[in-house]
Amino acid sequence: MLKELSAANIYIVCGHTDMRKSIDGLAAIIREEFDLDLFSDSLFLFCGRRRDRLKALLWEGDGFIMLYKRLENGKFNWPRNEQEVRNLSHEQFVWLLQGLSVDQPKAIKTIEGGIDFY
């Protein structure tokens, strides 16, 4: 069963990934290139060179789930820095799936702490 994604960390693997890779190949990228914990409560996103397909890898506690999405019209606005993996907020994840950039310049950014009014 697909678990609730709202509790998961969402990581986007920037650049392009060979979309012929299976669960083991994608897991090797996460483990060897980025040294991240595959078995954490995390969703890992990968995109091909054409940017019209993405794969997602998720650990369910008893095995991996691989999700695949192919757009029929349009492309994902995917960051292209080959050496980077980024942690996305759920809002950025929704933007990405809607074809928008994960870096929305007009979005109000959250801040840590508060403002002193004294």
Rank of each mutant, 00 (worst) to 15 (best):
R50D: 05
Q83Y: 13
L36N: 01
Y68Q: 06
L26G: 07
E84P: 10
M1S: 09
E60Q: 08
L36C: 08
N87S: 13
R50G: 03
A8P: 04
R86N: 07
A27C: 08
Q98M: 10
R70K: 15
G99E: 09
R50I: 03
I65Y: 02
K21H: 12
H16T: 14
K109C: 11
R50S: 10
I115L: 13
S42Y: 00
N77G: 00
S22Q: 13
K75P: 00
R53F: 09
A28G: 08
G114L: 15
D35E: 12
K109R: 12
I10P: 08
F64A: 00
L100P: 07
G61S: 05
L54Y: 02
L5G: 01
K21N: 12
K106Y: 10
G15P: 03
L96D: 04
G99D: 09
M1C: 05
S40I: 01
I10V: 15
C47A: 01
L58S: 02
D116R: 12
L54A: 05
S101M: 07
K106H: 11
E32D: 15
D18K: 10
L54T: 06
R86I: 11
F46H: 02
N77C: 09
I12M: 08
D37F: 01
M1L: 09
E72A: 15
E32M: 04
F44T: 08
L97A: 14
F39I: 00
L5T: 02
E33T: 11
I29A: 08
L67H: 02
T17W: 11
L43T: 03
G48M: 07
G63S: 01
I23C: 06
T17H: 04
G99L: 10
Y118W: 07
R51Q: 00
S22N: 14
A27E: 02
I115F: 13
C47G: 01
T17I: 14
I115P: 04
I111P: 01
G25V: 11
P79N: 04
I10L: 11
L2D: 00
P79I: 01
V85E: 06
L26F: 08
F44L: 04
E60V: 00
K21Y: 12
G114H: 15
L58K: 02
F76R: 00
I108D: 12
L100V: 05
I23Y: 03
V94K: 12
R80W: 07
N73P: 12
N73V: 13
R80E: 11
D103N: 13
A28P: 04
I115N: 12
E4T: 00
G25R: 13
D24G: 09
V94C: 11
Y11P: 03
S89K: 14
D41L: 06
G114T: 13
V13W: 10
K55A: 05
Q83L: 09
Y118S: 13
I65V: 09
S40N: 02
L43P: 04
Q104D: 14
E82F: 05
L71Q: 15
I111D: 11
P79G: 04
L36A: 05
K55C: 07
V102F: 03
E91C: 06
R50T: 05
I10H: 09
S101W: 07
K106C: 06
L71G: 14
R20L: 13
P105F: 05
K3G: 04
L96T: 08
